[in-house]
Design a protein around this nucleic acid. Sequence first.
DNA 1: ATAATTAGAATGAACATTCGATCTAAACTG
DNA 2: CAGTTTAGATCGAATGTTCATTCTAATTAT
Lengths: 200, 200
Amino acid sequence: MFGRYNKVQRAVLETTLGIIIRKELQATSMALIAKESGVSTGSIYHYFQSKEEIVNELYRAIVAFNGEYVREGLTQGATLREKFEAGWRRVVDLGLKYPAGFQFIEQYSFSPYIYDDVRLAAYTGGWCEPMNRLYADAIARKLFVPMNPKMMVQMHYGTFVYLLKANLHEIYALDEDSIGEAIRSCWNAVLLPEAAGAQL
Amino acid sequence: MFGRYNKVQRAVLETTLGIIIRKELQATSMALIAKESGVSTGSIYHYFQSKEEIVNELYRAIVAFNGEYVREGLTQGATLREKFEAGWRRVVDLGLKYPAGFQFIEQYSFSPYIYDDVRLAAYTGGWCEPMNRLYADAIARKLFVPMNPKMMVQMHYGTFVYLLKANLHEIYALDEDSIGEAIRSCWNAVLLPEAAGAQL
DNA sequence: ATAATTAGAATGAACATTCGATCTAAACTG
DNA sequence: CAGTTTAGATCGAATGTTCATTCTAATTAT
């Protein structure tokens, strides 16, 4: 997740992520980060300009990681249906395998704490754009209902976010079957009835 | 929204909500609340035990308000399809008419800042439970796919949350048509193909 | 030896909360 | 009814703590 950083930076970023998710940004003090990461405050400030900068760097790193992971899924599979399945499965996987990163992005993607340019870069550098293109193509091919593709992607992302959130907070347990059903239900939600039988 | 509170409490709660949404909890100081609400810090502490208490009270009040609003929608309409439509339409309405309240709940429903008992009470006092029952009935009547109803409601809620979020942040503009389409697409997502023609 | 790195105490600002002083108005008294 | 008491409400300055950040000295690597 933090491959391109050095040992100290990695320790700081990992620790900060852990504390933010365990507690809150509010309760995430530099003293605590220093203590838990084993890096003194002096050193932290040698590598990062400010606390804000750490959080924004965290955001950048996770978006890049998640983006790459989901984009890779989108290239798998020959048919639209397979790409759709693989893409969203990767999104769910991220939430299950890297819950802290997932929750962090979830929590900060609209927060004023994240610099505007970082947020903007996330949109183009993440997996949003390729997924939008997949949907736009499907609409052009008259397979999906003619809605705004951005809107459709956003809606489906919301579906999986909430599925994962509830799983994370132990409202229910998410298993392989439920994930498959959730993806199928999203597919049904946007598939044009006329296209139901065709080769996709 | 804050009908059952007195003038001072209302001013404090409204102001706090406004600041939290405009800024962050982090940046929401008692001094600022006092200044903007026109109530001195001394008086604020006469009516509320602590800052935490204000935020939790805010949460309670908004959940109660939203719960009543959506539950009222769920009683409208004779058929399942009409109830489904009316219920989710109310959820969307809330997001459009009371964006601050909507964003607040969105942001704090899983936050450690909210006391566990308040969060729990929200679940039973809000609209979650009646909506779950609607879905459970539809599954029992073999109209909806046999998934965990809680999961289905959670998924659909996520759909609308993200639709509203993107609208709020001006990624696109949500109009009447799109809302209708979004609700229809959720309906299609869970409707059993066999049930498609029947009277619902 | 020089530059980079690390450490942790020191600094100063910001903050939640408390406190004692006023103010208001209702209740009580003669 | 005028005068007095009392309980609650309001205020903002004072308090003590916490926190991000800086600074200086010490350590390590080149």
